[in-house]
Design a protein around this nucleic acid. Structure first.
Length: 618
RNA sequence: GCCACCUUAGCUCAGUUGGUUAGAGCACCUGUUUUGUAAACAGGGGGUCGUCGGUUCGAAUCCGACAGGUGGCUCCA
């Protein structure tokens, strides 16, 4: 058995041990499913009116430890399916009975592989499976495919983490069960390491850093999911957007502007309204028309395209716009900057001839790759294709062609991708690019989407070489995606230590004293730095130099420079360089002008390397 | 939206079984100090304890509703 298999068996066994403990403490418990998940396991439990809270964990853990100590053997047995169903009935385990019915009818219990109508229904006659396996430890018997460790004492170190509500089979129409989560590893050291990692991740949580570094504000009065950005946070946003827009311009995109409110009719034509009617928050002004805040931009760009007759010579026509849109989200889904109600996208739409699709997508993917390589963030790529449900608009043959094109481009661009069926937009397939946050959760940022549906719905056209009308295709893209979501991931990725080009404060001058000549000199340096476009401040407060250095460190300023008599006399400085910045050359005190120009060049080059060297005196 | 938990000063938190004018550190302000690479010293201001209602002689503390926040609600017995 490989280590991986063994760990899996340990975690799965712990799920059973936890269920055993719960059944001991609450014999009336009805059990759902208890699978292995990343880093651990969970078990879904229905206790009726009784609610388990984290305060109950010590007694559950204690019970589990007793079971582990007893070294109960895990014994496998099989039952005929009908016998098993009878067992579930007798044991008063209705959820198990439902699972068994699904097994009998369809040979699987995976809710998404089953017809929703059939879930949990009973079949007579022929069965899809004959036997089902059971595992028993002590008095506890559970329907289970296995495998397990040999006996409970081999289950390994674990810790219960949290309890959460979870709908039976993920469907909100079903009863809500209590899901007990635990983490487990083969050794105590690995478990401790994992817990330490979670602690570290908490330290770099973007919500915490956003407050500490004064980047954004969440106000109860403004409302949930509506973050406000401070001057520092706005510098970050603007610098990122500037980079994104420069990249887009380099492949031919032109900037547009569209208003934040629109007639709802627009989205009826585009098809978005029919698809998400509950998400459209409507308000009316002085007319019979209903207006709304825009939740996306594609129909607007379409209107600009459609405002003139277009020739094949004009294509591709590429519009880009970094703009904020407004989407209703369920209150429980809001989260810091990652999931908000006002989100700003570096959005673009290209209108292309069908023979231009590949080249356009390649151009876009090349700038996406540039962006994330400069930001030093690893990507994972999904091709989001349709499945055979009927939620999609447009001709399936066109879809098939579009998906082939996407995959071809992904191959040519050497993307390491996987295909996700059923994840496409209603109007077309997508290339979705995800990056990870501090806890390893993946968030979608960049996206490239191919769309034949909206051009058709809006009856877009251009005149071809042949004098006939033709329909263009549309390519939607966002590089950063939602700036807010991107920032949430990026703040955690960097731990708030932004590269020089993004740092809200790039250089901080620290005065040794408040004498006139010191202040004058510091002000001269700031003036010069501003001419070079550097964001520079002076800390002239009446504090010790040590305290001021500490402050600059806490604010994660890339360069801090102490200004005193030595600097004034020599016009040379010894910059203190933030430790994540890669130092390339060695040098001692450096002329102020050279220092500033070097930093300005780094910012311009968007690099986190410097050719300066600071003597960090102990 | 649903389930669990949380909400005390700008921030991080303490506040014993309900019992006088609710505390600390940091931050802020004032004064002293004129500072050389991760925290000088002293003093001061600041809270209707998330909001509303209830129980009680008495509520930060107990109960309820609401608001906001956190974790989760997809990953096959």
């Amino acid at each position: 058995m490989s280590d991986q298999d063994n760990l899996h068996a340990m975690r799965h066994s712990l799920a059973h041990i936890m269920a055993t403990a719960v059944m001991t403490l609450w014999p009336e418990a009805k059990l759902g499913v208890g699978p292995v998940v990343e880093n651990g396991f969970y078990y879904d439990i229905d206790l009726g009116e009784t609610k388990i809270s984290e305060d109950d964990f010590p007694k559950i853990e204690k019970e589990m430890k007793i079971i582990i100590k007893q070294g109960q053997k895990f014994e496998r047995s099989t039952k005929k399916i009908d016998e098993a169903i009878k067992w579930a009935k007798d044991a008063k385990q209705p959820y198990k009975e439902e699972l068994l019915n699904d097994l009998k009818r369809s040979g699987t219990t995976v809710a998404k592989d089953l017809d929703a109508e059939e879930l949990g229904t009973i079949t007579d006659g022929d069965s899809a499976v004959e036997d089902v396996s059971f595992y028993q430890n002590g008095d506890f018997v559970d329907l289970c495919r296995g495998p397990h460790v040999e006996k409970t004492s081999k289950a390994g170190p674990f810790k219960l983490m949290r309890v959460a509500g979870a709908y039976w089979r993920g469907n909100e129409k079903n009863p809500q069960m209590q899901r007990l989560y635990g983490v487990a590893f083969e050794t105590r050291e690995e478990l401790d390491q994992h817990l330490e990692m979670l602690k570290q991740a908490k330290l770099r949580d973007h919500r915490k850093l956003g407050q500490e570094l004064d980047l954004f504000v969440l106000s109860d009065l403004v409302g949930p999911g509506l973050p406000l950005f401070t001057p520092r946070g706005t510098v970050l946003r603007n610098e990122l957007v500037k980079f994104s827009e420069e990249l887009q311009q380099s492949v031919g995109y032109e900037e547009t502007w569209n208003p934040h409110m629109t007639r709802i009719e627009l989205y009826k034509v585009s098809g978005h309204y029919d698809k998400y009617p509950e998400r459209f928050d409507v308000s009316s002004i002085e007319s019979d028309d209903k207006f709304m805040l825009k939740p996306m931009n594609c129909p607007h760009h379409i209107q600009i395209y459609a405002s003139q007759p277009r020739s094949y010579r004009d294509l591709p026509i590429r519009y880009m716009e970094t703009t904020t849109m407004y989407r209703d989200e369920k209150s429980g889904e809001l989260h810091g900057l990652s999931r908000v109600r006002a989100l700003t996208q570096d959005d673009s739409h290209a209108f292309v001839r069908h023979d231009q699709i590949e080249a356009e997508m390649q151009g876009i993917l090349s700038i996406v790759k540039q962006m994330y390589s400069v930001l030093d963030m690893p990507l994972s790529v999904d091709l989001s294709f349709r499945d055979d449900r009927e939620n999609y608009y447009g001709d399936p043959k066109v879809w098939e062609q579009a998906q082939k094109t996407l995959e071809k481009v992904a191959k040519e661009e050497e993307l390491d991708y996987k295909i996700e069926l059923g994840e496409a937009a209603f109007y077309g397939p997508k290339i979705d690019i995800h990056v990870s946050d501090a806890l390893g959760r993946k968030w979608q940022c960049a996206t490239v989407q191919l769309d034949f549906v909206q051009p058709e719905r809006f009856e877009l056209e251009y005149t071809g070489e042949d004098g006939q009308k033709h329909q263009p295709a549309m390519i939607h893209k966002a590089i950063l995606g939602s700036i807010e979501r991107f920032l949430s991931v990026y703040i955690e990725h960097t731990g708030g230590r932004f590269p020089v080009w993004l740092a809200p404060e790039q250089i901080r001058l620290i005065t040794v004293n408040q004498e006139d000549k010191t202040v004058e000199f510091a002000n001269e340096v700031v003036e010069r730095a501003k001419e070079l476009g550097l964001r520079t401040t002076v800390d002239n407060s009446n504090e010790s130099v040590g305290k001021k250095i500490r402050d600059a460190e806490m604010w994660k300023v890339p360069y801090s420079v102490v200004i005193g008599d030595k600097e004034i006399e020599s016009s040379k400085v010894i910059p203190r360089i933030r430790k994540d910045i890669v130092v390339q050359e060695k040098d001692e005190a450096v002329d102020v002008e050279i220092f500033l120009k070097t930093v300005a060049n780094e910012a311009k080059a968007r690099t986190n390397k410097t050719s300066l060297y600071g003597l960090n005196k102990k």
